[in-house]
């Protein structure tokens, strides 16, 4: 097989670099090729919405970025530093935070243990106290097992867990799925606040209403490929939105 030469890494690494750069990401599950030559870039303080149908490859792309699928190739840079060679547990130590779909938590751990598990202290960053400040409900439930939480509370916990690692970039996989509309609205305002702190956010969603309300840019994914990318304002009501998401 003829391979393109790997892309040159960005010249300088540091605070001026984009939070996340993904180049030529390919993911295979056994014989099936799921994500093709995916390239995305998320600047600091920017929210990129990754929109596509179920099965389009959104979750797989995120798993590839986090390093949770064995059959992934390509380059991932966080703040300009390559993390491509690192296993998932090292990528997620302070670089990348992953908030999986379904508000996954550790149900047999307490709320506080769930949060402490990912904690990576950073100057002026998120701490247990700040997370509790942002989600007072979690403070009330701090010694409860996470398994007993409602769907909305669990989603707060899942996002809180992501924040505790003070990541450069936050990856959210369909955070609104299965949530009551009233909780979805709260999540939207949280994402807007996070952007202001300079965090880069990649939001994979089918719920285009929420996603396009909070996003700066939108990338459309279909059959494992990014087929279009544009500013969020342009994406609203666009033909491609109709075609891809069938609205």
């Amino acid at each position: 097989m003829i391979m393109d030469p790997p892309p040159a890494p960005p010249a300088t690494a540091g605070a001026t670099m984009p939070a996340l750069q993904v180049r030529q990401l390919d993911v295979r599950y056994g014989k099936s090729h799921v994500v093709f030559d995916l390239a995305v870039e998320v600047a600091r303080g920017e929210l990129l919405a990754l929109l596509g149908r179920n099965g389009a490859g959104k979750t797989t792309a995120i798993l590839g970025i986090v390093g949770l699928v064995p059959g992934a190739s390509g380059s991932v840079y966080v703040s300009g530093r390559s993390v491509s060679k690192l296993p998932s547990y090292r990528r997620t130590k302070g670089h990348v935070a992953y908030v999986p779909s379904g508000a996954r938590c550790f149900p047999n751990l307490t709320v506080q243990e769930n949060l402490e598990l990912t904690a990576r202290p950073a100057a002026g960053g998120w701490t247990l106290a700040r997370v509790f400040e942002r989600f007072p409900k979690l403070r009330e439930l701090r010694s409860n097992q996470a398994g007993g939480l409602s769907g909305g509370e669990r989603q707060m916990l899942a996002v809180g867990r992501g924040l505790m690692s003070n990541p450069t970039v936050l990856l959210l996989d369909e955070p609104t799925e299965g949530l009551a509309p009233v909780v979805v609205q709260g999540l939207g305002s949280l994402l807007l606040d996070l952007k202001r702190t300079g965090m880069g956010i990649l939001l994979a969603e089918q719920n285009h209403r929420l996603a396009l309300r909070v996003a700066d840019r939108a990338a459309f994914i279909e059959k494992g490929r990014i087929v279009a990318e544009m500013p969020a304002a342009e994406a609203r009501g666009s033909d491609i939105l109709h075609r891809i998401l069938g609205v």
Partner: peptide, 11 residues
């Protein structure tokens, strides 16, 4: 109150 919230831009 308990569930729907204000449905935004209902299609």
């Amino acid at each position: 109150r308990v569930y729907l919230g204000e449905l935004e831009e209902t299609a």
